[in-house]
Amino acid sequence: MTARWHLLMWPPLLLSLALLVGSQSIFLRGSFFADLRVGRLGSELTLQNYWRVASDGFYLSALWLTVRLSALVVVFTFVLGYPTAYILARMRSVWAPLLLALLVATSFVTIVIKVLGLVILFSPGGLLNVSLLWLGLTDQPVSLRGTEFGVVVGLMYFTIGFFVLLLYGVVRTIPRSLEQAAQLLGAPRWRVFWRVVVPLSLPGIITSALVVFNLCMGAFTSAALIGAGRILTLPVLIQRTVMLDARYAMGATLAAVLLLCGLAINLISILAVGRLKAARRVVA
């Protein structure tokens, strides 16, 4: 008789499904009714909320801002994180596991504390601004609060640990002998990187980049705390619409739009990668 271990899987699966689909469907269902403010919904099914989002420049620019900031975070995280992951993965030193452990540990520090640290560091009397003013590099204190740059930095603080950790694993699967073979074939270091390491880690780069992108699209804390009410990304806007304005139907509509955009961007990326010859070979 075979043990039916898979039966053990059902209770947690059903529970998480009920919690996710149940709550989300009730919430998202609200987006199909007219918003009568102060938490009341109309009784007839309508698409007017979606029409409002699609036609109102305010909402569209919030959506564009969210996508744009998330994409910027992906680019900067990649530029900083990929070389870090590569170097950590190829380090022979006994320090490599320690450095990786440190990085993982910082990823698990709650984002509120990290953002608070950033805010203190960049406050007008903070270490950074005092130093910059003293060095004469600026005559005004530099502030992150309420700037797009600040929100990007805050988001990166949160994503880079994940990204490095994911790509560390990817680079470790590329045999060192491939790089050595390329070197003996006359390729200098950067050519080895470009012709061997990058194509072989491309599928990993894409999935890690999507993870970062998705984390940013839904990120509320960094955008709310550093944005200080001036950087209105969709998650921030949803929170305000629901909590401050008590416009449940509109909040639900924005949430549905955010969800659909995220799904669409992910699907398009995955399909686009599937067409890349190099990536297909590596996965196969």
Partner: peptide
């Protein structure tokens, strides 16, 4: 001197063929 300037080449124990390149691209790499 670094390996790429020594004008030597090596057949590795695990062959170290580039999995993302065809046979022709592997041979033509250098």
């Amino acid at each position: 001197q670094p390996p790429q300037h020594r004008d030597v080449n090596m057949v590795f124990q695990d062959y170290a063929l580039f999995p993302h390149l065809t046979v022709a691209e592997n041979i033509a790499f250098g």
